[in-house]
């Protein structure tokens, strides 16, 4: 191992073995784990100990702020330039609800999209995993598990064995 290692990457034949391996390694105390799958796999985030509710939370906060802001703007505009139409109240709040609703939907949409992108660290054009040519299969039919060398309990020899025990087809060393 002349060059520095990013970690070990293992390919599994199916999702079930990937979940089992992730759970086991996590229970062994490894924390810098990530799995790569061609589609969302139920149970995998739990096996990896991923618990993150920030995306829906951001969406909710953005929706409330956008809605409240829009309503406030409409009320302010009506008071700033009072305009009598057919004797209706100056602050006709029921009529303001449609724009308020539309803008809170925009808030939630942009909140969800951008929090997803930013929390995932995008845009990120380079990543060491792309150095493994076979990693392309993650977006086709491959199930991968990566253990990063930065993990305090990282031990390449033992991990290699352990991953193979769990049914990994192949294990690569990922140069960093």
């Amino acid at each position: 191992m002349a060059e520095r290692l990013h970690g070990l990457l293992a390919r599994f034949p199916d999702a079930d073995r990937l979940i089992a391996a992730s759970r086991d390694l996590r229970e062994c105390g490894l924390s810098r784990l990530d799995a790569y799958t061609p589609h969302p796999v139920a149970g995998l985030p739990e096996a990896l100990g991923v618990r993150d509710r920030r995306v829906p939370l951001t969406a909710l906060i953005c929706a409330v702020l956008a809605g409240a802001g829009t309503l406030a703007l409409q009320v302010y505009a009506s008071l700033d330039y009072p305009f009598n139409v057919g004797g209706k109240p100056v602050v006709s709040w029921p009529a303001y609800m449609i724009v308020t609703f539309a803008m809170s939907m925009v808030g939630a949409t942009l909140g969800a999209l951008f929090s997803m992108l930013l929390l995932n660290g995008f845009p990120r054009p380079y990543h060491p995993l792309f150095n493994v040519a076979e990693f392309d299969a993650a977006s086709r039919d491959g199930f991968f598990l990566c253990v990063e060398a930065a993990d305090p309990r990282f031990d390449a020899e033992r991990l290699n064995q352990r991953l193979k025990q769990h049914g990994a087809d192949r294990v690569w060393e990922v140069p960093s």
């Binding site: 790569y36 997803m116 992108l117 660290g121």
Partner: peptide
């Protein structure tokens, strides 16, 4: 944008998609 099909990506993707 550097999407790597990570379980973390998918988890957030699914949350955003659900919203």
């Amino acid at each position: 944008l550097g999407w790597r099909n990570s379980a973390r990506h998918w988890a957030r993707y699914e949350q955003a998609h659900r919203v």
